[in-house]
Amino acid sequence: MNGLDLEVITRALPWLAQGLQYTVQLTCVAALGGIALGTILALARLSSHPVVAGVAAGYVNLMRSVPLLLVIFWFYFLVPLGLQWVTGAGSPPRVGAERSAYVTFILFEAAYFCEIVRAGIVSVGAGQQSAARALGLDRIQVLVHVILPQAFRNMLPVLLTQAIILFQDVSLVSLLNVTDFVGAAGKIAQRDGRVVEMYLFVALVYLVLCSAASALVRRWQRTHSIGRHPETAR
């Protein structure tokens, strides 16, 4: 075991690719689901109804105060029990950490996305809302056609940053023996005794993917910033 054995990586590529696919898939589903649920939570937090706003705020604060790892463990046990309760089955179904992780991350990330979306909505001036309502649009139309498109545009960089953090956090599921990208690399590293090569490679892939994602968004911002104007962007 002297020097770096790069061949161990080539040999493990199909296996690693499978792990990476799971990681990417979990990240995308959790980001989209988290943004959707987070938007609903954000609207609830901004609601003038005190109970609705309070429940949403409580949920967000709870999720944000508990370490992610703990939440992952919780849902690993809770999701089967929840499903049993919903379906009325005699015993908890075997869900497996791979699948319970989807629920975990959507519910956990929603709390973070909620705060981002809420800031984004608030960043759209009150005048826009007045103008939209003055045209006869109803509440939902105002949100969908006027407020949210501008809010998402304003918060895109922060959303992406959060998604990149999520992409990295997903690796925690490997602690439940799930074969995500890190989990897959870890298994090879143990089996072949090639810890350095495997973890260097994993780090490199993370670096490339995250940098690429950031660059993509910077470009998107440049080409889509045309609708902004200092006067209307007050």
Binding site: A131, Q150, G227
Partner: peptide, 20 residues
């Protein structure tokens, strides 16, 4: 909403929708 649709309003700061 229906009433507002029938009354036009113009604002000091225009309030055009910048994304459209």
């Amino acid at each position: 909403a229906r009433l507002r649709a029938r009354v036009g309003m113009v604002f000091q700061h225009f309030e055009l929708f910048p994304h459209l």
